[in-house]
């Protein structure tokens, strides 16, 4: 049972019967209304920003190479997948610049895959913060997403440098600027995923065990490493693949970076609909659980 709202007037009346002024009192620990919630979230922005900045800057300080790992990790990832899928399995199916294809896919997918794998644990890992302050808990997924975006700035720089330097050099074009709006949509998508899984993972901690599998499945099923669409001819499969926002996402990055073209409207619509839809659904779902996140879980 939650703190019941209908007993509040009774308490206020009994206090006033004793001659005490209780008009300025209000219930605590109850989920605020949406407008209030959003404005509290907005007031929290300074903390979220400063906290994210410092955490990104200090997260690798225990490693000898420090923040060089922000560059090295995605590099190693891309090198490994290129070795396996490009050289050993030879899965490129007629993709011209397969190195760039894999680098773009792997590096840009990392951001979404982090949201998927870390989303369910986000409330648990910030337990100390939740138990110490009252603030809109939605600030936690947002903060994680901002940290992720900060790291992605470095990742994107590494990625662009690599596709220019590696053979079959891609050269900078005007369409490269399109990665900014595409990444903005990707961040919204990530945030929606975080909100959704944060509450699911809080209620059902076991979900986080399955998340690495789901993340892997999405990676292979979304054309991150090899052109999945060229393995299926069936129209139903094609429709499923094309409705997948992650497939559209990596596809759009590749069109903008490798083909020097503007991604087709259908891609924008699919990605945009998923991003905005998931964000709204995820945020509402998360907000409804707001008052429960401080409870002791055993």
């Amino acid at each position: 049972m939650r703190a019941d709202a209908d007993t509040v007037p009774q308490i206020l009346r009994s206090l006033e019967a004793e001659g005490m002024d209780a008009s300025h009192l209000g219930p605590i620990g109850v989920r605020p209304r949406m407008t209030r919630y959003l404005s509290e979230l907005w007031e929290r922005r300074h903390f979220v920003w400063m906290d994210s900045r410092h955490r990104v800057a200090t997260q690798n300080s225990s490693n000898l190479l420090g923040n060089l790992w922000l560059v090295l990790r995605p590099l190693l990832d891309a090198a490994m997948y290129f070795l396996i899928f490009g050289v050993i399995l030879d899965a490129h199916r007629g993709i011209d610049n397969f190195a760039a294809y894999i680098i773009i896919g792997v590096m840009m997918f990392r951001s979404t895959s982090r949201s998927i794998s870390q989303g369910p644990g986000i409330l648990r890992s910030n337990k100390a913060m939740i138990r110490a302050f009252s603030f809109p808990r939605a600030a936690l997924p947002i903060s994680a997403e901002i940290r992720d975006a900060m790291q992605m700035v470095i990742t994107v720089a590494v990625m662009l440098a690599m596709i220019i330097v590696l053979p079959k050099h891609e050269l900078p074009q005007v369409t490269w600027l399109l990665i900014v709006p595409i990444f903005a949509l990707q961040s919204l998508l990530n945030l929606g995923i975080s909100f959704l899984f944060a509450r699911i993972g809080y209620v059902l901690p076991d979900v986080s065990q399955a998340m690495t599998v789901i993340s892997r499945f999405l990676m292979y099923g979304s054309g991150v490493i090899f052109p999945i669409e060229r393995f299926f001819d069936h129209p139903v499969f094609a429709a499923i693949i094309h409705a997948n926002p992650i497939y559209q996402l990596v596809h759009m990055y590749r069109v903008a970076l490798m083909d020097g073209a503007v991604p087709e409207l259908r891609s924008w619509v699919v990605l945009g609909a998923w991003a905005v839809g998931l964000l709204i659904v995820g945020f509402l779902f998360f907000w409804r659980g707001e008052a429960t996140y401080g409870d002791e879980k055993r």
Binding site: A3, A22, L25, I28, G29, A132, F133, S134, G294, E296
Partner: peptide, 21 residues
């Protein structure tokens, strides 16, 4: 402090309490 919801009962406060944490 409103950080943990009670199983039952109500807390009314005049301001947001700040827990030294």
């Amino acid at each position: 402090a409103g950080l943990e919801a009670p199983s039952s009962g109500t807390v009314l406060t005049s301001a947001n309490p700040s827990l030294l944490g």
